[in-house]
Amino acid sequence: MTMVPVLLSEWTKVKTVRSTFITLIAAFVVTVGLGALISFFTNNNFKNLNASERANFDPTSLSFSGVFLGQLAIIVFAVLVVGNEYSTGMIRATLAAVPQRATLLLAKAVTVLALVAPVALVTAFVSFFLGQALLGSHEAHLGDPGVLRAVFGMAIYMTLIALFSLGVGFMLRKPVLSLGLLMPFFFLISPILSAVPKVKNIAHYFPDQAGSRLAAVHESTTISYGPLAGFFICLVWVVAALGIGLVLLKRRDA
């Protein structure tokens, strides 16, 4: 089977599921809203920051603070793209219609990419402009060095997280199991390990830590690499997740 009919089929399945648009809208609202709140309160309390905090202040990255929770909706969306079919048993019909497992995985990945990338791009720009407006005199401008790259980096990170979550969805198949792994990983394991001296250097290579470099303008005082390396680290996680997902798809669902 050629790619076009498979893509059309995947698009039809995704757009007819209500959770698709609910989760993507939630990702936008939470990311923009939380980033705006943090920017507002930071501006009001800027005088209380110490000298070190002011020296490392990154207004661009600050406006993207909401992605910490906003990515939750992106993860849920990507997991459900795969998990819904396994939960309902529809996956049997899908695999019968598309015997080429690589074609199926690629079609789902392209569908997720086509839906998440535009939402991520709009979310990144709206978060930036609203956040900077609320930062008042402490704002950054789109033409400042590194700022435009960071805005696009934020969108790229959200998109890569969606593809990574899709790969995990293929690996584990069940939505509850996939979310039960991804949620603790991003919201507990990564933040905790990054704060533990003996293992924090390892945690710095987790996808969310690498993604933080994509959306930052200033150099980090704790993470040794820059945005380009952060992109490739995230990309390696995505390729690994999708690659393992494809291997398991071929072995278990052959």
Results as ranks from 00 to 15, higher is better:
V79Q: 00
T103W: 00
L104V: 05
T111M: 03
T16A: 15
A55W: 06
T88K: 10
R18H: 09
R18N: 08
I25E: 02
A120E: 05
V14F: 12
R54A: 12
S63V: 03
T31H: 04
A27N: 11
A120P: 10
T31P: 08
V119A: 14
N45W: 11
E10N: 09
K47H: 14
F57T: 07
I75T: 12
E10Q: 11
V29C: 00
A27K: 03
S65W: 07
L34V: 13
S39Q: 00
V17W: 07
A109E: 03
A73I: 08
G35L: 02
V30D: 08
V30C: 04
F77H: 08
N48E: 15
S52L: 14
L115M: 07
A93S: 11
N84Q: 10
N50C: 01
S63Q: 00
V67A: 12
L113R: 01
F64L: 04
Q71E: 11
A97Y: 01
G70K: 09
F64M: 14
L105C: 05
N48F: 15
T88A: 13
G70H: 04
F41C: 10
K108E: 09
V67P: 06
L105E: 01
F64A: 07
F41P: 06
S61M: 11
A36M: 09
N84A: 11
P99T: 11
F28P: 02
A78P: 07
S19D: 00
A27H: 07
F41E: 13
I91V: 15
G83A: 13
A107V: 03
A73W: 12
F41Y: 15
S52N: 14
V14Q: 13
N43E: 15
L7Q: 09
N43H: 13
T60H: 05
L72M: 10
I91C: 05
I75N: 10
V81L: 14
L95Y: 01
L80T: 00
T94K: 05
V14D: 06
I91G: 07
T103S: 13
V116P: 10
N44F: 12
A102M: 11
A96L: 10
I91T: 11
N43T: 09
D58M: 03
